[in-house]
């Protein structure tokens, strides 16, 4: 049994207004995320899993419900306070690489610490360590767009790690990568959970990653369809191999 939760979503709903209609993207989602666990949110495109992730990191305030992280309802915080929360508590890895283009790799990695107001010496030392963790230290002085997609994504992970956050969220981090780069990123993320006891929440539609997860939530049409813990996951993987392949193909087409 998992210990005390790190994140708790309580009856979270999110509506978007399209024209005159309100479209429900998330419908009454409640779930728990635990420390030192690898949690997957999976579902087809448009199922609302990215919105769910953005709700957890405070970029998308819910229309209804509460998002507790470390016991604090971040849905109630103001914009600057949510920025501060993101900065100190969460590390985010995006599907698209996002950089401050005038800064080189290591400067980009230092940004979250510099934003905290840390000294340059401290920030650069931490950034070096972080880059080393993902095996990208030798590219520290390059400009990010000069790197391959896989390399950029590793630097993205280094940036997410640099503040030593308890929670790391990744929104389809392998979405644009070849399988080798994907595997490298995944092994880094798994190591963060196993070696460094971080809690990693990852959005994906690639079911082959389910075997790496400690917990998984399947999302469909904005609703939490199913929660699997470790035991349920292994059972699921045993019994549903063939449908999994069918599912995977179906998702790859979207």
């Amino acid at each position: 049994m998992a210990s005390k939760h790190l994140v708790r979503l309580a009856h979270v709903s999110k509506d978007f207004t399209v024209g005159k209609n309100d479209v429900g993207v998330l419908k009454d989602v409640s779930l728990h995320i635990y420390p030192a666990e690898f949690t997957l949110l999976y579902g087809p495109s448009g199922s609302g899993k990215s919105t769910l992730l953005n709700t957890i990191i405070g970029l998308e305030p819910p229309t209804k419900g509460q998002v507790f992280v470390d016991g604090r309802d971040i849905a109630k915080l103001g914009e600057d306070a949510r920025s501060d929360y993101r900065n100190r508590t969460v590390g985010v890895v995006y599907q698209q690489p996002h950089w401050v283009k005038t800064l080189n790799v290591i400067e980009n990695v230092t940004l979250p610490l510099l934003i905290q107001g840390r000294s340059k010496n401290y920030s650069f030392a931490r950034a070096e360590y972080s880059l080393q963790q993902v095996g990208m230290l030798e590219f520290a002085k390059r400009m990010p767009p000069q790197l391959s997609g896989g390399q950029q994504q590793k630097v993205g992970v280094a940036r997410a790690l640099v503040t030593e956050p308890e929670l790391i969220v990744a929104d389809e981090p392998t979405g644009n990568l070849d399988s080798q780069s994907s595997d490298e990123i995944m092994s880094i993320l798994v190591e963060l959970v196993k070696g460094y006891k971080r809690s990693v929440v990852m959005v994906t539609h690639e079911l082959r990653f389910l075997k790496l997860a400690d917990r998984a939530f399947s999302i469909l049409d904005g609703e939490l369809e199913q929660e699997y813990d470790k035991a349920a996951l292994s059972k699921f993987l045993e019994n549903y191999k063939e449908p999994l392949d069918i599912l995977r193909k179906g998702n790859d087409e979207t």
């Binding site: 970029l59 920025s83 934003i115």
Partner: peptide, 10 residues
Amino acid sequence: GLMKALGAKR
């Protein structure tokens, strides 16, 4: 957007 996402204040 990135800087704000990383925690930069207004």
